[in-house]
Design a protein around this nucleic acid. Sequence first.
DNA 1: CCTACCGATCGGTAGG
DNA 2: CCTACCGATCGGTAGG
Lengths: 205, 205
Amino acid sequence: MSDRRATIGVVEESTAKRSSRDAIFAATIALFSERGYPSTSMRDIASAVGLLPGSLYVHISSKEQLLADIVETGIDRFMVACREAIEAEKTPAARFRALIHAHMALIAEDPEHVRVALHQWKYLTGASRTDVMDKRREYEGIFQTLIADGIAKGEFSDKLNPRIAVLTVIGTLNWTSEWFHGDGPETADDVADDIADVLLSGLSA
Amino acid sequence: MSDRRATIGVVEESTAKRSSRDAIFAATIALFSERGYPSTSMRDIASAVGLLPGSLYVHISSKEQLLADIVETGIDRFMVACREAIEAEKTPAARFRALIHAHMALIAEDPEHVRVALHQWKYLTGASRTDVMDKRREYEGIFQTLIADGIAKGEFSDKLNPRIAVLTVIGTLNWTSEWFHGDGPETADDVADDIADVLLSGLSA
DNA sequence: CCTACCGATCGGTAGG
DNA sequence: CCTACCGATCGGTAGG
């Protein structure tokens, strides 16, 4: 009986901590996305979740670790979604389109989180910084491989500079989080198809 | 004689002030581009130019005004270069290519200044902030008009979403300042032609 | 352009 | 989770 109560007590306490932590994460993502990491103070975050500044440190270890956790979960979602998109299709063009759909779906789901992951990682130092840079390179590698594969299979043009083609695609996708927020009349899938059309067909008539 | 000396004195003093101001601008651009506006302190800037922190205020009025001046001159260079590119060519496709060449030439000339103008304007407040936002809209309007014109003249495809086409081009160009620095084997003109090829022809074979 | 300094704010902690 | 506080650093200024 006392065993059972104690267990329930522990479960409830850990659930409360989890939801506090989640609230801190959500508020921090909104603030980092709007003002940027260096201009957001721990006092800003505390007042957004209704705590006093010092109390934040019950749930997190440091401001930078908070950023690292947010960036890492954001990037990991991209990697998972990308791999699923690649595996779901066989031909380079279909995979390319699926990648863009996955990208836009993630932005529609949580545009602020994506923006923090894309822009605020620059303020990380040490191991978490190199981790992020490695994962970004891995992400770009997915497009490099895909485009090289498409050229090899004759689906993509061999008259283009493949490195520049990759950078064009990545630039386009990175920019989407600045103007697409998931609201508005167009769905993520609509926008993804339009972007894929532009990148695959080009502007010329 | 005393008149003449006094005049020379004034000229020399103002020249010295100008070069101090220029040194402050150059050092600030490097720092803002590397660490961002909020994480750069006036003490960082002062020590980069060999002054004590308080002495900076002989040459500038505030940290934010310093940012505003840097961003404004950066954007103005873009507007001037864009207008020249548009006027130099007649057909939409040629104008499009000329715009990309102008863009890459500016980055090659001063990549750090471009990066500050593109990213750090977010930390401006009040009138300078709305000024910048207006100019950015004007800049995007150049591409909107150009693409609409190209479609109307049958040079660009009427099967694409023109708004998405504009955002694809702008995303691609904004991203160039992250990877092109004017060094390396490829010239700004080489890269500009490759980018124009990708955007005009598309990836598909 | 320096000396000397201002009040405000920062991330974070000890102890309860 | 709060009270109370730490040393460090911030942008900026008065007076010379």
